[in-house]
């Protein structure tokens, strides 16, 4: 049966199996294999082919190996290589691990000075360090001073990166742009309230988009202009997240912001375009 949803973009997707007339920027991705799951598409070449197939213009990325492995001589080496090799398709997040913060702080200038990098990526719970603690303080000060983007993993019921810690950071840092990665599953209402209270905070669809009503709730809560498309590629099929946005009770104008315009706005704000 034909859907009651009259989105022109949904009709296009159902007809062609992809979006053709709207570009997409994926603000939350990784690259490479990782523990836990078989990832049928995970290396850079296969992911670039996927971007072409799904009409995704570019991705903002932090490679798995840079997040989960500390290579003292090659900090963020995988992500740097991706940014060099695919300058039009990949923008990098500089992964910051506070457990070796001296080493990471030595190279943090790259996040600001390299046009191919958009900012910093934090995984506080994975790295067992509180987002609002000592471990991240200098990196956050740096990001704030340089007006960078910070993509931080947030999770409602996990220590170190709940909404409470994110709000602590947002209260102290007004110049950086902060993405609540995953929008704190288990505490989406808290993430929405935090974004509503801080104009430099964005909600991330990554993972959490899949639940019934999530996209609508975000758009109602903060407006479509502060919701970002993110997939965790290569973990998850971009079509699933695209479908979550297409299948939501929002307007096509909202969808354009979520898929593309908001990301462009951030790139302009942080001077990376």
């Amino acid at each position: 049966m034909k859907p009651g949803n009259k989105s022109a973009y949904l009709a296009e997707f159902l007809r062609y199996g992809r979006l053709k007339n709207i570009k997409i920027i994926d603000a939350h991705t990784h690259m490479g294999s990782v523990y836990g799951c078989r990832l049928p598409v995970s290396d850079a070449e296969a992911c670039m082919k996927l971007l072409d197939e799904e009409n995704i213009e570019s991705i903002w990325c932090s490679a798995h190996a840079d997040l989960f492995h500390i290579d003292g001589d090659r900090i963020n080496g995988e992500t740097k290589a991706l940014v060099r090799k695919y300058p039009a398709r990949v923008k990098g997040y500089y992964a910051f691990n506070p457990n070796r913060k001296e080493a990471y702080l030595r190279g943090i200038g790259e996040a600001a000075e390299n046009k191919g990098f958009v900012g910093l990526k934090f995984l506080p719970n994975y790295h067992n360090s509180a987002l609002d603690g000592e471990g991240y303080a200098e990196a956050l000060d740096f990001a704030d001073k340089r007006g960078l983007l910070v993509l931080c993993h947030t999770w409602g019921d996990k220590p170190h990166n709940s909404v409470k810690e994110a709000v602590g950071v947002l209260k102290r840092h007004k110049n950086l742009v902060f993405i609540l990665g995953h929008s704190a599953p288990g505490d989406l209402d808290g993430a929405i309230a935090a974004a509503r209270a801080h104009e430099n905070a964005y909600l991330d669809l990554c993972d959490i988009h899949r639940h019934a009503g999530t996209v609508e709730k975000m758009v109602r809560g903060v407006g479509a202009e502060r919701v970002l498309f993110g997939t965790d590629m290569p973990w998850y099929d971009p079509n699933y997240c695209i479908g979550s946005v297409l299948g939501a009770r929002i307007t096509d104008a909202d969808r354009e912001k979520i898929f593309y315009k908001n990301a462009i706005g951030i790139l302009k704000r942080i001077g990376k375009i």
């Binding site: 949904l10 159902l14 899949r210 639940h211 019934a212 079509n239 699933y240 479908g243």
Partner: peptide, 16 residues
């Protein structure tokens, strides 16, 4: 409703 309906529809519609 653990998942929305749009995501799974798009995965099937977009599968090669």
């Amino acid at each position: 409703p653990m998942d929305n309906m749009g995501g799974p529809v798009a995965v099937l519609a977009g599968a090669r």
